[in-house]
Design a protein around this nucleic acid. Structure first.
Length: 896
RNA sequence: GCGCGAUUAGCUCAGCGGCAGAGCGGCCCGUCCACACCGGGCAGGCCGGCGGUUCGAGUCCGUCAUCGCGUACCA
C-alpha cells in the first residue's frame, strides 16, 4: 500500500462532500430491519420546520445526536438515525401567506385547494435546503427512511390516533374559552401563548349608584360591555348585603347580578370582580357556575360587536374610548398607571392573544398526562439533566385540556363529518366518509404538535406492525432543546404511552388494566440554546445569528461540530464565537499534522481490529511508550463513561488535551529522540505505539469530528472507512473493565516527573532571558539516583542542553525532582533580574511553608484528616523548606 | 406570586469537601528537521455579600442581593 502524501494543512472543503457522499453511497447509515442479533439503537430527529433553514441550534442538536449515533454504530449496534421534517402548520402557512402578500394576494384569492398546493410547492424547495445542510454537517442519517409529517403514511397515523382517542372519549368538541390570535385567525393552545409583562392601566369603575353600587377594577375596560355579573367572595362581609341584588352596568343600561364565588380573592383590590364570561377564562368558569349569559362583544378580528357607539372599533381603540365615556359619566373612581401585568402574545406573530368563546376540539389530557408523568417518576424514562424533572412534572401534572383544532388550511384536516340533525361521524382510516350534500367535513386542521407527538412511531410505520417498528422501537434517546420539552416531548410521551404497548409483555401496566405501555424513548437528553460570544440570545433583530453553512465554509464542518460539542454541558446553554470556531479548526489542523508527522516517521498499524494488534511486548517498550498507552487507556475509559451521561463538553475537552498536550506536546517530542536515536529496536517499537495511539485517538474522536478522522484514519490504516471501525471503549455486550487496556502507574509517575523537571528548567531558562532554542551547556547531577536515570538524553533534547566541555563553570541551577540542573548561562544572564526572581520565589516559598506548618499544627487536622492527606501535606512542607534553603544559598552565591 | 438555575481570571465556562482550572484574549521570547491554524514562558481570582456546619468550604446548609429561565386565573 502506498500512503498518500498529506498536505501541511488540513483543507476541509477537499474532504467533506466527497467523504459524505461516499458514506451514503456505501449504505453505511442504513441499518437492516432483519434481526442480526445485534442490539438496536434508534434516534428520531426532532423534525425541523419545512419552511425554515437550519440554524446553529439545529447544528448543536445534530452534533450531539450524530456523535451518539456514530459511537453506537462503531460499537456494533444496529443503528438508525431517522431524518425528516415537520409541516409546521401555522408557521408554514404564515410564511406562504407572506409570500402571497408580496404578490398582492391572500389565501382566499386562491382558495383552499390551490393554497395548499402552493404550500406543497414551497415545501419542495425549502425542504431541500435543509437536507443539504444536514449533509454538510455530516449527519449520519438514513436517507432511505426520510419522513414528513404530511406523508400519506404519517397522515394515516394521525387519522388513526384521532379515531382511537375519539372512540375512547379522549377527544371531544366543546364551546370553551380558548386563546385566539386575531391576526392568524385561529385558536392556539396554551403553550403557543407567550406571556410578557407589560405596562397597562388599571381603572376602578363604579357599577350601580349610591347604596346600591360596587367598585370593580380592570385593565381591559372595553370588556365591561360584555359583563353579565359582578362577583364577590361568599365570606366577604363588605358585600354580604349586595349578593343577589342587581346593579346597573354603566354605558349599557343593562342590570347585572352580584354573585358570590370562591374564586374571588377578597384581599385583592376592592374584592369585587367584573365578570365577562365570553372573554375571560376565569369569568367563563364563574359564568358556568352561576348560569350567567355568555355575551360575546368582539368578533374574530378583535372588533367590537356590542351595539352602541363602540361598535366596529378595534379592541385597543375601544379601551380608551370606553374609559373616556365612563369618565364622562363620573364612573371612574381611580386609575393606576402604569400597571404592570402579564399579557399573552401569539408565539407565531406576536399579536396580543384574545381569550375567545369558541367551538373547538380538545384532547382530554388528564389520563394521558398522568401516564406521561409516571413514566418519568418511576424511571422508565430517564431525564437528563435531572433538574429538568421538576419543570416537567409541574407541566404534566397540571395541564389543561389541549385545544387541537386550528382554523388553518395547512395541516391534517380533522377527520370528522357533520350531517343532518347534528349527526357527527368520525370514520376509520380507509373507511368511506358519509357522502351526500347534507354531509360536510370539519373545516379545521389539527395542531401541528398532534402529528409530531406521534413522530417516534408514525415514522416507523405505525399503525401497521412493520419490521421497522419491531426492530427500532422504542427509540433509545430523544435529544432536543429544553425549550420544546412541553411542546413536543411531553406530547410524545402522552401519545406514545397511549398508542404503544409491548406485544411481548404479559405484565400489566401501572394501572393493572392491560399490556405494558411502551415508552417512546428510554431517555430524554436536553441541551441548551446556542448563544453568542457574550452569552446573549441569538436573534435576527440583534444581528448576532450564526449561519452554520457560513461557518462550515470558513472553518469546516468538524470545527463547527467540535465548537458546539465543547460547550454542550447537559442542559446548559452554549456560547459560541468565531474565536471558538477558529480554535476548533486549529485543533483539527493539529490532529492533521500530528498524523502527518507520525506517517512520515513510519507509524504503523499492524492490524485494524482491536485486541489483535501486535503491539510489542510491554516489557520491551520505552517508558514514554508505556506512559502514552496508559494515558490513552485512562482517557478511553473516561470518554466512554461520559458518553453515557451526555457530557460532551468533558469528552471534547479531554480528547482535546490528550491529543494536543499529551500526544503532540510530549509524546511526539519524546518520540523524536527515540526515532532518531541509535537504538534500532526502540525506534521500531515507537513507530508501532505512535500508530496505535493515533489509531485509537482518531476512533475516539470520530463521533465528534467525522471528516478529518476519516481522512487520516484511512491514510494510516489503508482501510476503507473509520465509520464501521470498532469503538475503542466498551463494545456492545462487553464489560466496562475491558475498555481501554491496562494502566501503568509507574510509567505515568516517571513521565510526570520528567514533565515537571523539564517545565521548571524551561521556566528558569525563560526567566534568564534565554531564547527557547539557544543551546546551553549543562550538567545534570544526581539524576542517576532518581527515577529519571534513563531519561537524560530526552531531557537534554527537550531542553536544548549540551554536554558541558572541560572548563564548565555553571552560573545558575535549578533543583527539581531530585535532580540538580546546573547551567552555564554566564554570557546571557542578568544578575539583577535573577535576584528579583529569586527573592520573589523566596517570599512565595516562605508563605507556603508557613501556611502548611500552621495546618499541620492544627490538632483537629492531625487527628481527623486521613493519613494520605496528612502525608501529602508533610511532603509539601518539606518541599517548601528545601526550596527556601536552596533559594537562600543561591541568592548568597550571586555575584555583586 | 410560585418554581428552577446561575453568580469562579478581561470574556465564555469547567470544578461541587482536602495545594484555584480550561479555551479565547493580554504580555515576553522564538523555530527554520509535523504544525505560525505553531512552539516556550508569564501575568491576571478576598470563587456575589453576610452567617452557619466542618480539623478543613468555590464546593454542604441558611439568608440577602443581582441576573436568567419556566410557570401563573390576581381582576
Amino acid at each position: 500500500m502506498t500512503r498518500p502524501e498529506l498536505a501541511p494543512q488540513y483543507s476541509p472543503a477537499d474532504v467533506e462532500t466527497r467523504r459524505y457522499e461516499g458514506w451514503v453511497d456505501a449504505g453505511l447509515f442504513t441499518p437492516s430491519a432483519q434481526d442480526s442479533g445485534a442490539p438496536s439503537y434508534t434516534i428520531v430527529i426532532p423534525p425541523p420546520n419545512v419552511t425554515g433553514s437550519l440554524h446553529i441550534g439545529h447544528a448543536l442538536d445534530h452534533t450531539i445526536i450524530d456523535a451518539l449515533i456514530r459511537r453506537r454504530r462503531m460499537q456494533g449496534y444496529r443503528t438508525l438515525w431517522l431524518p425528516g421534517m415537520d409541516h409546521a402548520g401555522i408557521a408554514t402557512q404564515n410564511v406562504v401567506e407572506r409570500e402571497l402578500a408580496r404578490e398582492g394576494l391572500s389565501r382566499h384569492d386562491l382558495g383552499r385547494e390551490r393554497f395548499v398546493e402552493r404550500v406543497w410547492q414551497w415545501k419542495e424547495s425549502s425542504g431541500g435546503a435543509i437536507l443539504g445542510q444536514m449533509r454538510r454537517l455530516g449527519d449520519s442519517v438514513d436517507w432511505t427512511r426520510e419522513r414528513f409529517t404530511m406523508d400519506a403514511g404519517l397522515s394515516r397515523a394521525v387519522h388513526t390516533m384521532f379515531k382511537r382517542l375519539y372512540d375512547d372519549g379522549l377527544i371531544y368538541r366543546a364551546e370553551r374559552i380558548i386563546n385566539w390570535c386575531p391576526r392568524c385567525l385561529t385558536a392556539l393552545s396554551d403553550i403557543e401563548v407567550e406571556h410578557a409583562d407589560e405596562d397597562g392601566e388599571l381603572v376602578s369603575i363604579r357599577y350601580g349608584d349610591g347604596e346600591n353600587s360596587i367598585v370593580v377594577a380592570t385593565t381591559r375596560a372595553e370588556t365591561m360591555l360584555g359583563d353579565t355579573a359582578v362577583a364577590v367572595h361568599p365570606d366577604d362581609p363588605r358585600y354580604a348585603a349586595m349578593v343577589g341584588r342587581e346593579v346597573e352596568l354603566p354605558l349599557t343600561g343593562r342590570r347585572i347580578p352580584v354573585v358570590a364565588d370562591p374564586h374571588v380573592d377578597p384581599k385583592f383590590g376592592t374584592g369585587a370582580v367584573k365578570v365577562t364570561p365570553a372573554h375571560d377564562p376565569n369569568d367563563f368558569e364563574i359564568g358556568r357556575r352561576h348560569n350567567l349569559p355568555m355575551l360575546t362583544i368582539m368578533d374574530e378580528h378583535g372588533l367590537i360587536t356590542a351595539p352602541g357607539p363602540f361598535r366596529g372599533l378595534d379592541r385597543f381603540e375601544a379601551r380608551p374610548a370606553v374609559v373616556a365615556a365612563l369618565r364622562e359619566d363620573d364612573r371612574i373612581v381611580a386609575e393606576k398607571r402604569p400597571y404592570e401585568h402579564a399579557v399573552g402574545h401569539c408565539s407565531r406573530c406576536g399579536t396580543i392573544v384574545e381569550p375567545r368563546l369558541s367551538l373547538q376540539w380538545f384532547v382530554k389530557v388528564a389520563p394521558l398526562a398522568k401516564a406521561a408523568g409516571d413514566a418519568v417518576r418511576d424511571g422508565r424514562v430517564r431525564l437528563h439533566p435531572p433538574e429538568m424533572a421538576a419543570r416537567y412534572f409541574d407541566w404534566v401534572d397540571d395541564m389543561h385540556d389541549w385545544c387541537i383544532s386550528r382554523q388553518l388550511w395547512w395541516g391534517h384536516r380533522i377527520p370528522v363529518w357533520y350531517g343532518p340533525d347534528g349527526a357527527v361521524v368520525c370514520p376509520a382510516p380507509g373507511e368511506d366518509p358519509p357522502s351526500g350534500d347534507a354531509w360536510q367535513q370539519d373545516a379545521d386542521v389539527l395542531d401541528t404538535w398532534f402529528s409530531s407527538g406521534l413522530w417516534p412511531f408514525s415514522t416507523l410505520g405505525w399503525p401497521d406492525d412493520t419490521p421497522d417498528l419491531r426492530a427500532f422501537y422504542p427509540t433509545s434517546v430523544l435529544v432536543t432543546g429544553y425549550d420544546i420539552l412541553f411542546f413536543w416531548v411531553a406530547r410524545m410521551m402522552m401519545l406514545g404511552l397511549y398508542a404503544m404497548t409491548d406485544p411481548d409483555s404479559a405484565s400489566p401496566d401501572s394501572a393493572g388494566t392491560g399490556p405494558a405501555q411502551t415508552v417512546p424513548f428510554a431517555a430524554i437528553a436536553l441541551h441548551g440554546l446556542v448563544r453568542d460570544a457574550r452569552g446573549r440570545k441569538m436573534s435576527k433583530s440583534r444581528g448576532n445569528t450564526v449561519d452554520p453553512l457560513d461557518w462550515i465554509d470558513r472553518f469546516g464542518a468538524d470545527a463547527v461540530r467540535f465548537t458546539l460539542a465543547r460547550g454542550a454541558n447537559p442542559g446548559g446553554d452554549v456560547a459560541v464565537s468565531e474565536e471558538w470556531a477558529a480554535g476548533s479548526r486549529n485543533f483539527c489542523n493539529k490532529l492533521w499534522n500530528a498524523a502527518r508527522f507520525s506517517l512520515m516517521n513510519g507509524a504503523c498499524v499492524p492490524a485494524a481490529h482491536p485486541g489483535q494488534q501486535a503491539l510489542p511486548d510491554r516489557a520491551s517498550l520505552s517508558v514514554a511508550d508505556r506512559w502514552i498507552l496508559s494515558r490513552l487507556a485512562g482517557v478511553t475509559q473516561q470518554v466512554d463513561a461520559w458518553f453515557e451521561d451526555y457530557e460532551f463538553g468533558k469528552i471534547s475537552e479531554t480528547l482535546y488535551h490528550f491529543a494536543w498536550d499529551e500526544y503532540c506536546d510530549w509524546y511526539l517530542e519524546l518520540a523524536k529522540v527515540t526515532l532518531t536515536g541509535p537504538a534500532e529496536g526502540a525506534a521500531e517499537h515507537t513507530k508501532a505505539v505512535l500508530g496505535y495511539v493515533l489509531d485509537r485517538l482518531l476512533r475516539l474522536l470520530h463521533p465528534l469530528v467525522p471528516f478529518v478522522t476519516e481522512e487520516l484514519w484511512t491514510a494510516l490504516t489503508g482501510e476503507d472507512t473509520i465509520v464501521m471501525a470498532d469503538w475503542p471503549g466498551v463494545a456492545a455486550g462487553q464489560s466496562v473493565a475491558a475498555a481501554g487496556g491496562p494502566m501503568d502507574a509507574a510509567a505515568e509517575a516517571e513521565i510526570g516527573s520528567l514533565i515537571r523537571l523539564v517545565t521548571q528548567v524551561r521556566r528558569f531558562r525563560s526567566d534568564q532571558g534565554l531564547r527557547p532554542g539557544q543551546r546551553v551547556p549543562a550538567a545534570l547531577t544526581g539524576i542517576g539516583q532518581t527515577r529519571l536515570a534513563g531519561h537524560e538524553a530526552s531531557i537534554r533534547s527537550l531542553l536544548r542542553l549540551e554536554v558541558p566541555a572541560d572548563e564548565f563553570k555553571p552560573t545558575g541551577s535549578v533543583q527539581a525532582e531530585g535532580v540538580t540542573v546546573e547551567l552555564d548561562t554566564a554570557s546571557v544572564i542578568d544578575v539583577a533580574a535573577e535576584r528579583r526572581r529569586m527573592q520573589k520565589d523566596l517570599v512565595t516559598a516562605t508563605e507556603e511553608a508557613e501556611r502548611t506548618r500552621r495546618k499541620l499544627a492544627n490538632t483537629g487536622f492531625t487527628s481527623k484528616a486521613p493519613a494520605d492527606i496528612i502525608e501529602k501535606t508533610k511532603q509539601r512542607l518539606a518541599a517548601a523548606e528545601a526550596d527556601i534553603e536552596l533559594l537562600e544559598s543561591s541568592l548568597a552565591a550571586l555575584p555583586g
